[in-house]
């Protein structure tokens, strides 16, 4: 495979799965500027890891692993000093504003869910985003590196927790949904 084909292949796969960047960045970061930095770090890490990509693994699974690992590290880093990359002025990789506008019609529940996901710990966020994305219990276990049984138990537990939080918000006086 030539370098140009390699790059073209990478960009094509990235284009096919660009939603992963948006969803992972949204799950771990709400600040618009940080979100762009996070996507930049994800893409850099994806490109650096791409030569070692083994196509026996689904690209989305591989991409989720890299994206989640970068996002969790980003979330845990308290200052830029701890982060792996330096932000450089550049045109945005993703037009977040346009994507946000397009999602503004998604309804209150969608945004409430995003807020509630933001209150979970880092690993549970990864778990529920993968679950909502339609991944099977085994796929989630493979991406996170835990046993399928543990994944199943945790999915049930996080769903219960989210449901409770949903219900509490709905029953709160003055809360409109």
């Amino acid at each position: 495979m030539t370098e140009t084909n390699d790059e073209a292949g990478f960009l094509r796969l990235l284009e096919e799965h660009k939603g992963i960047l948006y969803k992972a960045a949204n799950a771990y970061c709400r600040n618009p500027e940080d979100r762009l930095d996070l996507v930049q770090e994800m893409v850099i890490q994806l490109w650096k890891s791409y030569p070692r990509y083994d196509d026996r693994l689904r690209f989305s699974t591989w991409m989720y692993r890299v994206a989640m690992n970068v996002a969790i590290s980003f979330l845990r880093s308290t200052t830029r000093r701890d982060r792996d990359t330096v932000s450089i002025d550049h045109p945005d990789i993703i037009d977040f504003a346009a994507a946000d506008r397009s999602m503004s019609g998604a309804g209150d529940d969608y945004f409430v869910l995003q807020q509630l996901i933001g209150q979970l710990d880092a690993m549970s966020r990864a778990l529920i985003v993968l679950y909502l994305d339609g991944h099977s219990q085994n796929e989630i276990a493979e991406i996170l590196g835990i046993s399928p049984t543990n994944a199943g138990t945790r999915i049930a537990r996080v769903k219960q927790k989210l449901q409770r939080s949903f219900d509490e918000r709905a029953n709160r006086p003055g809360e409109t949904r």
Partner: peptide
């Protein structure tokens, strides 16, 4: 709706 800026990605 989501658009990737391919020119920026190539530059990267």
């Amino acid at each position: 709706m989501l658009q990737l800026n391919l020119a920026t990605l190539r530059d990267m």
